[in-house]
Design a protein around this nucleic acid. Sequence first.
DNA 1: TCTACTGACACATTTGAATGGG
DNA 2: ACCCATTCAAATGTGTCAGTAG
Length: 763
Amino acid sequence: MLSVDMYPALNLGPQRIGDFYRDREAHAHIPMLPPACDMTQRMPGPLSAPSEPVSKPQKDDVKMDLENSALWKHFSSVGTEMIITKKGRRMFPGLRLKLSGLNPSVRYILLLDIVPVDNSRYRFQGGGWQVVGSAEARLPDRVFIHPDSPATGAHWQSRTISFHYAKLTNNTLDTQGHIILHSLHRYQPRIHVVEARDVLKWAGGQRTFVFPETQFITVTAYQNSKITELKINSNPFAKGFREDGMNSKKQRDARQKRKISDLTETLDTVNCDPCDSTELVPQHSANPTDLQALGLALTDHSAGFRPEEASYKDTLNPEHSLALDQAFIASQMSDIGINLAGGIQETSGTSVDNSMIERSDPLAEPAYISSFAAAQDNSSNFSSVPQPSSSFDSLPVSTSSDTSDPRPSIPPMDYPTLLSSSPTLPATPSLQQNSFTFPTPPPSDSSSSSPQAVLSSSSSSPSSNPYPTIPETVGAQTPTPFRCQSVTQDHMSTHSLLTHSNQQQLTEPNSDRNNAQSLWASAAFMYPNVQTTNQDLFTIAAQPLPNQYQPAAPPLSRPLPANSTPTSFAFPSVSSQIQSLSFPGMSPSPALHLPNISHQAPAPSLGATLPHPSFPHPSSASCSHPHFQPSSCLAVSSSLQQPIPTSAASSQPHALPTPSASSSSTCSYPPVEISAIPPTYRSELVLHHPALLPQLDAPLPSSNPPAALYPAFPSYPLRLCQNPHSSLSIPFRHLYRQHQHGHPHPHPHPQGSYLDMSTRAMF
DNA sequence: TCTACTGACACATTTGAATGGG
DNA sequence: ACCCATTCAAATGTGTCAGTAG
């Protein structure tokens, strides 16, 4: 609610960040380009982009680290897959972040959105992912707002930030605010840090952080068995499926056998056939354990049938279990070319299980220490392809012994080293190889009374805390008084902000791309024809009071494209105070009309705005091993996120590697195509929380932004919907901004029904 | 027939209420 | 009466698998 207006700013449009990869130091992403490494010097085109106050990047030192970068890279080395279900599925690994450089006294909002990496649909074939066609029409973008938002910089910096509550769904009609994605598509999560001074006012810039290693392909069922194994061994919720779990393959087989045996016995009893039951009945009927053993024997040919072993297996002590896990994990790691030996040895004598499994947290991924340096082959599942020359030739380039998959189109893990290959990225020390360790959980974590908090973990004591920081982020609802106020004020500010932002956006000529070389934007690459303009979207200060709405600003110089893509934003939680708020007299389903929120321009000519496909691919060498790919974070000031000039793009290797280039990398995914994201991007902005509805809706002054402000561009009514799941432990406020195709005002009342989401017939 | 998706299933974890002891 | 620890059950998060639809 804080500022719906800011949302548009987030709608940067698809960015070709998939192949971006910027090395960084082990513990420090370099979200924001160091002042010393002024990208502008490397960015083609005008360097004066940030000259304008509104878009002027803040030269603060906001940094965001991906705490569980190592885990992400492990998955990425195999090809991260994310299950999406109709009801919504959490991401694993989750995004665990550390923020620094924020103004402790200023409030910030953290947002998560997930954008397509390319315009392709994938299929898992021959042990790798291949492009099998073009992507489906992009679904409405939804943004997940961290439950703590807004919170002060001190708050964000004092703990690990987790977005584990975010869920992914393939239900295009999802009404729970989950992030809607297409199956078998490749996506890239983005984290936005939006300054919300005075709760309602956008007083600063927006920072967008992208961690290439967090790319993933959505699936409804795991395709790559290695991913399954990694998940089982990393996610506590899947513990039951581990080797020693009761739901393991062996155990399941045993149960299956047992069932068969029972059935057989029954049949035998009924049939009175002594011949068939004589040997079987005594074993399984007498002792279930024996049955399991039988099952194990049947499934494990190498072991043979040993009832005592079976029972022992069932009662494995922790140490034994750990040993098994270690062996298992080691085998798995070897499969993916990751040498866990170091990590295992570092786990305080416990085992990988401790570091990688036991400490794993559904919310907080295991903070095992991995050394990518030891990685031998990250592309086990993918055929190795000729490694293009790169600045990292000297580095151990994975020549992937696993060439079983000849498909060149299935590149192994590829995190294009932005720095290495991109002239625009400064070659910082971060390029150096590094071991990935996890920041020690903030004191606040340990202070938490929750079990997880008690089990604080750190790189130094990985096994001590399975749930290091979750309590912080999860439990920290941090309901803030402001929210109540925001409820009463936001609608106004929001509207005005939106208006303003839109105007700002609209007023920005395409020529703004020339400013793409801004310091902050250097790392960000707008998707095709993204005319963004995000820079100004957040610059409009909301009026403190609803009634104080003031027309924004500058009239639109040009209309937004009708097919621009609105972005939806989900408000994860609302303080209990707000939830309890009642707004008598408010319409049950008010909607806030947010004209022209969408700022995303269509991508008619991707080639024009996107880096040319043929541009040099980042050094494969650096990409071949996660080890050489420090968890990079692409930080971009929203205000500066602009499309990269064609010329610039073409010269930006890191922006969009060519398929061939990708194939040469270790990316688990096929090369990202430089195709444009379907111009049909649609965003929704729906406010779920009931408490917010009235506020957003009602007060909207009839004198909303003059129609003139939104000339030929259809408006995107903000549809407010009462959260059907207000009982959730963490109330979610979801904002969806729905784009009305060619129908600026499909409803007599600007406030449409939330159910109108179904109107997205275009999908 | 193949591929992708769905829902039921079993297991593990998390969470909060209930209970009992100090 | 209060606090704390333990126990229990429900809710939730997992991957698996059989069935289904296109």
